[in-house]
Design a binder for these strands. Structure first.
Lengths: 234, 234
DNA sequence: CGCACCGTTGATTAAACTCAACCTATGTGG
DNA sequence: CCACATAGGTTGAGTTTAATCAACGGTGCG
């Protein structure tokens, strides 16, 4: 197949960032490189949707994707984001169920695909790789449990404060100290489980209090200490 | 050590119910039986608490345990229950972190303990077992994602309706059609993330509408169809 | 008996959602 | 190039939901 870009090589990816493949043997890494497929995916594209059968897992080499569920009356609930080094879709593949989430690219991405067969081949051949995947799943599970407690018990204001810190942590900041992710107000609302208007009002409130700075979708955290206090995390 | 009860044998447990150990070889099952320890644990006992380092996983042979996190001002958020055949604590062991939840016995239990060393021994030796554990983790992850969407988007009434159906499903009913789990109103509230009073009011409302019957903590579902409609699940 | 825990009910309050209007930027087709 | 459509953002007003506070009854137990 003729590709118009340099396909990432699993070995490089593995060296550069710590991927789930770090316990694979050199020949297994080669097997992976030869058997994966890889695509550039434009912002706005839906990779797969809730209910789809997916036939393999996706490994993110570049870009940002949002993983969400569609709830009551189409309202989306963002579960998490995926970025360089993350693997998505494994849940559905492992338990042979249709996807329970949808995935949309929100920043131009390069995504590699590894089919179920190849995944199982590696899982059976290399138990360390299985343990590695188990670690990923367990980590995600811990995050999900925290999320449940937060949504159930915290106020919208506390959740917003927490998510801002969390986004800064996960995506870092650019030279101007602006958080490296571009979300609409609605997406922030769908992340913390509230209405768009509530997010807007609270962001203005934070801005008025000198805790953050806003320029359109750009968010800069000026007083992380105060934000942390507001978020009620210890 | 002198035991005052018949310790469960892993082989029997494995035959009787489908445990995560079903892919183990006979000699691995024997290894397990010889190396596990087993205890009767009385209702009310705390098995471990959030923040504790735990040195292995627990396999439930009998009884019911509640797994919960302690949130704002000590308010507990119940994450899930564990019963016969369930395994708990693996998350912390796999990622070598302190427990992120506490576990309390709410119905007299028999619990087997398998140390981290033994667990890793089996995981490394038998990749199928690792896949099995991965399946458990992925299943739990899917449930957690659903939970997040529910708590974030549904009303308290919808969540209560849903949880009643879910409890019936998970624990079944006795001869009198009463759900086989004994929860305080507060525990139901901590499960769906609301106040105790709200649960009480809504349960009375459901009762008045002829959807359920109540006798103390005993709950009988009379109209599952209506309840399902109310819960907004499709 | 008196304490502790649970369950219940009523009244009040507060948080957050909904609805509606309007503004801005951006892009598109005539 | 302008008119218009669209999507996102903002603000205000009103309403709803559910939390909080308070009082009280029942039950079991030391």
């Amino acid at each position: 197949m003729n590709k118009f870009f340099d396909e990432p090589i699993c070995k490089d990816c593995n060296l550069e960032i710590k991927t789930i493949f770090k316990k694979l043997l050199p020949e297994q890494i080669d097997f992976l490189t030869q058997n994966k497929t890889c695509n550039i995916i434009k912002k706005g594209t839906v990779l797969y949707q809730e209910g789809n059968r997916i036939s393999g897992i996706y490994c993110i080499n570049k870009g940002i994707l949002k993983i969400y569920k569609t709830g009551i009356e189409g309202k989306e609930q963002i579960i998490k984001f995926a970025k360089k080094g993350d693997v998505i879709g494994y849940r559905s593949v492992i338990i042979s169920e249709p996807a329970c989430t949808s995935v949309k690219v929100i920043e131009d991405a390069i995504v590699c695909f590894i089919s179920s067969q190849e995944l199982y081949h590696l899982l059976k051949e290399n138990s360390e790789f299985g343990i590695e995947m188990l670690e990923i799943a367990c980590k995600e599970l811990g995050e999900a449990n925290n999320y449940i407690t937060d949504i159930a018990q915290k106020s919208v204001k506390e959740r917003l404060a927490e998510i801002l810190l969390h986004l800064k942590d996960e995506f870092g900041v650019n030279n101007d100290d602006i958080i490296n992710i571009n979300l609409t107000r609605e997406e922030i609302a769908n992340l913390i489980g509230t209405a768009t208007e509530s997010v807007i009002r609270l962001l203005s409130e934070f801005k008025a209090a000198g805790i953050i700075e806003l320029q359109g979708r750009k968010i800069k955290i000026k007083d992380a200490v105060k934000l942390k206090k507001m978020s009620n995390v210890f």
